[in-house]
């Protein structure tokens, strides 16, 4: 994180380091919403469980969307549920992230021929990270959450909030310049 000096309305502000500090804090308190729709919900529970203890990364589940940063689309989404998920997403505070966990949330998965299933979470929500698997292993979900951490790390959101961020460049992708985990 290179320190940058930004000109504020009243004088100089060292926004870069503050951004870095804030991102560091945000990165290590990534709270996900305890919300699962289908099979992946069990693996979501196991991820919070003792084996892949996500508390190690400061990832704690919250029961209310108002306190959550990450919405994990864990499982098949039916049309009846889609509008409720949208409602949950709208209740979350900015900045918020969405993870599509498993094949059903990615593309509808094995329910391509079903009349009642939404073919992919990205048809009605902006999805940040897609995790393959049916259901993905807890470690897989952990990796997805870590990708969100990497994305947070390079987010200039304070600059953006200050109105000083040049918005002609698209938001950095989580994979851009990131290192693979292994």
């Amino acid at each position: 994180m290179t320190p940058t000096i930004e000109r504020g309305p009243e004088g100089g502000f060292a926004v870069g380091p503050i951004d870095g500090l804030l991102n560091l804090a945000r990165k290590h308190s990534l709270w996900y919403l305890l919300f699962g729709t289908a099979c992946c919900a069990i693996e979501l529970m196991q991820t919070g469980g003792p084996r892949t203890d996500t508390d190690r990364f400061g990832m704690v589940f919250r029961s209310t969307p108002r306190q959550a940063d990450v919405l994990v689309l864990a499982g098949t989404i039916s049309y009846k549920m889609a509008s409720r998920i949208r409602l949950l997403y709208d209740q979350m505070a900015e900045p918020k992230y969405v993870i599509a966990m498993g094949s059903c949330a990615n593309t509808g998965g094995l329910f391509q021929e079903s009349y009642a299933v939404v073919k992919g979470g990205d048809l009605f929500l902006p999805v940040d990270v897609y995790i393959p698997g049916c259901p993905p292993r807890p470690e897989s979900l952990c990796e997805g959450l870590m990708l969100i951490q990497q994305k947070i790390e390079r987010e200039p959101w304070l600059k953006k909030a200050w109105g000083k961020y040049k918005s002609d460049k698209p938001d950095p992708m989580p994979t851009e310049g990131c290192e693979p985990l292994r």
Binding site: S78, F111, S114, A116, V117
Partner: peptide, 10 residues
């Protein structure tokens, strides 16, 4: 019915 997936039709 929030998780109705039409498995009988499939």
């Amino acid at each position: 019915g929030y998780l109705h997936r039409g498995l009988e039709k499939i």
